[in-house]
Design a protein around this nucleic acid. Structure first.
Length: 263
DNA sequence: AATTCCTCCTGATAGC
DNA sequence: TGCTATCAGGAGGAAT
């Protein structure tokens, strides 16, 4: 579940169900996913401390251990990362890190394919600065002016720019396609060919898509007017009488309508 | 600066 | 039904 909406759902689950509890035991099978830290360091940073905050920057989830000076556990979901919080029952499959909290509750971080990352950082801002990670478009205060600024001077495809985490953090393959679809822009359009109006439409579409996707994803279904339920080559476009096409753009499978997304 | 290709893994699914 | 090939919502690194 790897783009901003899915990780935001995980963040809220942690915030609502796991915060303010002390970590009693830490169980790890990191399988090569540790980044810049060791199993013993992660264990020591978590065990015996209270979870005090859950934040997200792009596709990274940060969970603070301890009070204001505590460190932050960083989880990157790769393609198959998931969070599960449960009160009893068996540990879910593919659990790589499990925190048993006071009160009998457990927080499991799962990752079937081992493409995720487990890290420990001083704080999310410093991590984002060093990575580097671009601004998160769903964060408070980010607007059209900022969107124009991050695209300024770019010459690659708009799809590639939207998915580039150093430019904008949190957007991946599915939601970049969705925003471009709703803004009526072809994914291969180069950034410097976009008109002011295009960029404005794209920003509005992107913020709407990211905002609404959280709720739709949680409810389990996207509106049929979105591209998401029609990601099949040859499918009928739900917004016009065009056909959904598939091609490789910036290295990823992209879907777009051959009628209302003109190059 | 940007693209393409390769790589890390392994489950799901499309096709035969 | 069973097997095999291909793909997948990510991303870093090298070569171009």
């Amino acid at each position: 579940m790897p783009e901003m909406p899915e990780i935001e759902i995980a963040r809220r689950a942690v915030e609502d169900q796991a915060l303010h509890r002390v970590v009693e035991t830490v169980s790890m099978r990191p399988a090569g996913m540790l980044r810049g830290t060791s199993e013993a360091t992660v264990r020591a940073a978590l065990r015996g401390h209270r979870l005090t905050a859950a934040r997200r920057w792009g596709k990274h989830l940060f969970i603070r251990s301890g009070e204001a000076r505590g460190r932050w556990l960083r989880l990157h979901f790769g393609m198959t990362g998931r969070v599960a919080i449960y009160d009893d029952g068996d540990e879910p499959t593919y659990t790589r890190l499990r925190l048993d909290l006071e009160g009998g509750r457990s927080l499991a971080w799962r990752c079937a394919r081992k493409l995720g990352e487990i890290g420990l950082v001083d704080d999310p801002e410093t991590f984002a600065d060093q990575k580097p990670l671009g601004p998160d478009p769903s964060h408070e205060g980010f607007g059209l002016r900022d969107f124009r600024a991050v695209l300024d001077g770019r010459t690659g495809t708009i799809k590639g720019a939207l998915m580039n985490q150093a430019i904008l953090a949190g957007v991946g393959n599915v939601y970049s396609d969705e925003a471009l679809f709703q803004a009526r822009i072809h994914p291969e359009t180069s950034v410097d060919e976009l008109s002011e109006d295009d960029v404005g439409r794209l920003w509005r579409a992107l913020s709407r898509v990211l905002g609404k996707a959280v709720g739709y994803r949680r409810e389990g279904a996207f509106p049929s007017t979105w591209l998401v339920p029609h990601r099949d080559a040859g499918a009928a476009c739900p917004r016009c009488d065009g056909i959904v096409r598939k091609s490789t753009v910036s290295g990823r499978s992209s879907y777009w309508c051959d009628r209302h997304q003109n190059e």
